[in-house]
Design a protein around this nucleic acid. Structure first.
Lengths: 230, 230
DNA sequence: ATTTTACCATTACGATGTATCGCAACAGTA
DNA sequence: TACTGTTGCGATACATCGTAATGGTAAAAT
């Protein structure tokens, strides 16, 4: 058995780190949604066995946590924003845009506390922009209220977007035509107001809706920041 | 081969309907969370084979849709509420309470459009309470803004609650002590505002936070309903 | 040079959602 | 009453999943 008969030794396994793992997972999720992310497929992208990953994460949920935090790096504004209102608005819009780039984020948003370094940095920046404008509790409530709003709004927007894609219709048409079910329901006359909205409502740009609702909430915050807490 | 040797004919399979299926699924989810809901286990509860369910639903997601709609029956207020503000507030609180009873709802809230009969009824009631107070689009935006808020707020509340349960600590303590990670992060000094909030913030009752944020949003809505749209 | 350690691939297990298929009980017809 | 279609159900099967356990092998330590 000469050297020539023996194959070359297998190339050393490609080095791994969380960054590479998370990048692979995000790529998969971007392409096929969260459900396309399996530890096996992530590992395969890195020319590794599935079990290899357990050196870096101990559960699939942790991988999701890492993914979410990674996207928060995109959310973190690059320049310190002007006033508090601008800071909150930017935070909301950047989150929305990031979610449009990575739709799977909608499935994770608000699902678990985000304690990764990037998420903390985002929170810090936002809090800092409000610091001193009112007592701590009010500031916190302001940030949480705004973020509750945009979390919910983004999730709904993505949910609608998926429904539109699934049916190939705009939301407006989709509600009326696509669902014989909805059609039928409305025809019963049990939902007169809803029917009015569906039939007479104008179709509004998603981004505009988002921005308008956000402005309302920001107005509310402004009112509470203005005067000391009740 | 006498009669006695022959077994009795198998009892006819227990009759099934969606109501029973959904009830079984909800029971499972209440006990063990959404992940405890598998078609096999649901079917087992009904003394049926898994495939039997596919006569009533064609996919697991549909089962989730049915579950969500079923809970909306609990959310629907029994008496027509007073004014619009009360209507929105009641909608929010009833949704929150339902989610506390069925925590898994937090995982589904806002994830898909809710078009079931009960969900439509809830929407109708809410819309009806605002009907005529402003043009349709404003009314719709009001309802959507409020519901985006409470969807997001509820999800965060449940997320925190789970984290507390998992660590056995209150959120306050959990952020400071449990996570050596968070501790360390804050100690870096890179998150001064956040540190202040974590260390100096008072611990507020979850329901109170929810109610306060909700009131803020309702104030904002009130302002927009008062004067005609910009 | 030998032992220890640390890592990694393999194997394996139980569970899942769902496609397929064959059967058995009923409905309707002759 | 015999026969035949139809319908709905169970069993089987498959591909996939997350992850526990195992065992080998290469680098580090002695």
């Amino acid at each position: 058995m000469t050297v020539w008969d023996r194959p070359e030794p297998p190339t050393r396994p490609v080095p791994l780190d969380r960054e590479r793992i998370v990048a692979a997972a995000i790529a998969l999720a971007d392409e096929g949604g969260l459900e396309a992310v399996s530890l096996r497929k992530v590992a395969a992208r890195l020319d590794a066995g599935p079990m290899r990953l357990y050196g870096y994460i101990s559960t699939k949920e942790e991988l999701f946590d890492l993914m979410v935090d990674e996207v928060h790096a995109e959310i973190l504004p690059e320049e310190r924003p002007g006033d508090w209102r601008e800071a909150l608005r930017v935070h909301a819009h950047r989150t929305r845009r990031a979610t449009l780039r990575h739709e799977w984020l909608a499935d994770l948003l608000g699902g678990r506390p985000n304690l990764g370094p990037n998420a903390l940095a985002v929170t810090e920046t936002t809090l800092a922009a409000l610091d001193g404008l009112a007592d701590l509790d009010t500031v916190l409530r302001a940030v949480e209220t705004v973020s509750a709003y945009f979390t919910g709004a983004i999730r709904r927007e993505i949910a609608n977007l998926r429904a539109e894609r699934a049916t190939g219709l705009s939301k407006h048409d989709w509600q009326r035509a696509s669902g014989p079910h909805v059609e039928k329901m409305l025809a019963t006359g049990r939902f007169p107001t809803l029917a009015k909205v569906v039939y007479d409502g104008t179709e509004v740009d998603a981004e505009a809706s988002f921005a308008t609702g956000l402005d309302w909430v920001l107005d509310a915050v402004a009112a509470k920041l203005a005067r000391p807490p009740a």
